[in-house]
Amino acid sequence: MSLSLRLPPNLPHPALTTPGARGSPAIRLLRRRLFPGLLVLALISLPACKLVRNAPASSADNHGASSEAVNQGFNAAGYVAGIWDQQLLPYVAAQAVPATTVLAALRDNADAAGKAYGHRANDSTPWNFVVRGDGVITAANTASRAATIDVALLPSTSPPAALPAADLRIQIGPVIAGTAVRDAADFIKFGSVTNQLEFAQVSRAINDRIRDQTLKDFPRDNLVGRKVSFRGMFTAPASGTLPVIAPLSLGIMEATP
């Protein structure tokens, strides 16, 4: 069902209204004065047309990404497959700050924390952070499809006697929400795609890949009490709420009893 509900791959494109709506000044005048209905008819009929753009000849198409996000000739899944190993994962490895450091800074002064550790495209958008850490799972919500684990960070390697309070929440899918990964990756820029629909498709393709690759083997049962190690991104949370991390790597540390 879900696939059939998606938008048609080619949305009606406003570009196509231009030729019908323009014409010579004389025609414009005539049409406006005498045949306003013509224009309306033209506008109504035009959405049936398609704007065909050449699909990018991307070698990244061969990386096994889903074609779900392909839309209007822009292959978001292909783009994401192309940057995943070459740019995104190295970026996360290089940029990740210990989560304990970032969370302490956020508690202290959110804006200063953003300036010190965060990423954002402009002053009007929230800060995004790239973090890494180890922690113990204090709760797991696997009833929802947007499943999450709550994690108490472990600055030391010795496990606490009782479960401490959670410091953050990690999305374990299958539904991965938000745009934290895209927005924390400085090299993915809004200005470099045609419009926000394509920009949105990039984020969706990233989240799909997190579900299909990063979280493919992550267990769903008996999670509470186990130790995890993670890297990922989050968008600055509203005060009083846990940061929600989209993981770029997440694993159970099996060696710990």
Binding site: S2, L5, L7, L197, R204
Partner: peptide, 21 residues
């Protein structure tokens, strides 16, 4: 339908909702 934002919003809704069968 001719407004890009109509498509973008619908796409955003469905990108979330369609993940819940």
């Amino acid at each position: 339908e001719s407004d890009t934002n109509a498509g973008i919003r619908s796409s955003g809704f469905h990108d979330i909702i369609d993940q819940y069968p």
